[in-house]
């Protein structure tokens, strides 16, 4: 317990040190924090209803209900093992890859009200609509260009100029274009960690997903790369609905419009990020956010 608290403190220290550096990227992040004021009546992109999840006999998530607002950033926070990644990975049916997992309840994707968890719904269809960026950058062992083109190719796109345009657009969208413009055919593994993570974001953007899932996207990155990913998340908010799992509460505060605090598989509190961080309704949330508990 003690060590996890000190770890969080040092994260905080690092993040502050980065923001005091005063680079352009950090300015953007600062703006993000003050600029997030979710307007009332935002459309709901997905709704989680009475959702429970089992790893074998273990009930990892207990009857969770929450909305995911369209073109907003929703952060999932909570101590390790609270089930936030489990919830995130449900949205693109990642759990289907492993035996012994069971879903209960529904997650509806709007406007067509598809129940993502319906066994009749093909998980491949779900994953074509919902992109995911992982904790550790996982570019494929291909060129930068082919990484971004991957989603298009598996969707059967063959038109060379269409692929060229979409790759360029996606790399621009992921703020990577200027860095890789002249070496599109170099192996993706030659990029730095932060660039690899932006490449993974570009890979998703190329197929224009409706929702983007981020599973602790900066936990393997240094503070500068973290700042650029955070800025990117904030920019992407205009185009796509975003769900982000993070261990770093400052990050949740900086990038998200809504925050869900989870503990031991339960959703303790959901609300606008400002409200959760400034005026949490529950004592447990406040304790976690202020670092008294974790």
């Amino acid at each position: 317990m003690v060590s996890s608290v000190t770890m969080r403190m040092s994260n905080q220290g690092a993040a502050e040190a980065a923001s005091q550096g005063g680079s352009a990227a950090d300015q953007g992040v600062g703006d993000a924090f003050s600029g997030v004021r979710p307007d009332k009546g935002v459309a709901v992109k997905a709704s989680v209803e009475n959702f429970s999840f089992y790893y074998g006999d273990f009930k990892a998530l207990k009857s969770i209900s929450m909305p995911v607002h369209e073109k907003r950033v929703t952060a999932l926070i909570g101590p390790s093992g609270c089930g936030k990644s489990t919830l995130l990975r449900t949205f693109n049916r990642m759990h289907d890859l492993y035996p012994g997992n069971r879903y209960e309840g529904t997650i509806r994707l709007h406007p067509d009200n598809t129940n993502l968890l319906d066994p009749a719904v093909d998980p491949i269809e779900v994953r074509m609509r919902i992109g995911m960026v992982f904790q550790k950058p996982n570019p494929f062992p291909k060129s930068i260009y082919e990484n971004v083109a991957y989603g298009l190719r598996i969707r059967g796109e063959r038109n060379r100029s269409v692929i060229d345009d979409r790759v360029k657009e996606a790399l621009r969208g992921a703020a990577l274009w200027s860095e890789v413009e002249h070496r599109l055919h170099d192996p993706a593994t030659a990029l730095s960690g932060g660039q690899q993570q932006r490449l993974c974001i570009a890979r998703c953007l190329a197929t224009e997903p409706e929702v983007l899932l981020f599973d602790e996207p900066t936990s393997a990155l240094d503070p500068i790369a973290t700042a650029s990913i955070e800025e990117l998340v904030h920019e992407l908010r205009d185009k796509v609905t975003i769900l982000i799992v993070t261990h770093n509460m400052q990050q949740a505060a900086r990038v998200s419009d809504y925050t869900a605090y989870m503990y031991l598989g339960e959703l303790m509190e959901f609300g606008e990020t400002n409200q959760i961080f400034v005026n949490p309704k529950r004592k447990e949330t406040e304790d976690y956010i202020t670092g008294r508990f974790g």
Binding site: N92, M94, L97, I124, E125, R127, M128, G131, M132, F134, K136, N138, P139, F140, P141, Y150, G151, R153, I154, R155, C200, R203, C204, T207
Partner: peptide, 20 residues
């Protein structure tokens, strides 16, 4: 993580096996 990355893009098993 490589397989997950491919499946998350909407790839089938066959595409994942041969392309990644």
């Amino acid at each position: 993580s490589m397989r997950e990355g491919s499946y998350a893009m909407g790839a089938t098993k066959l595409q994942t096996a041969f392309r990644v």
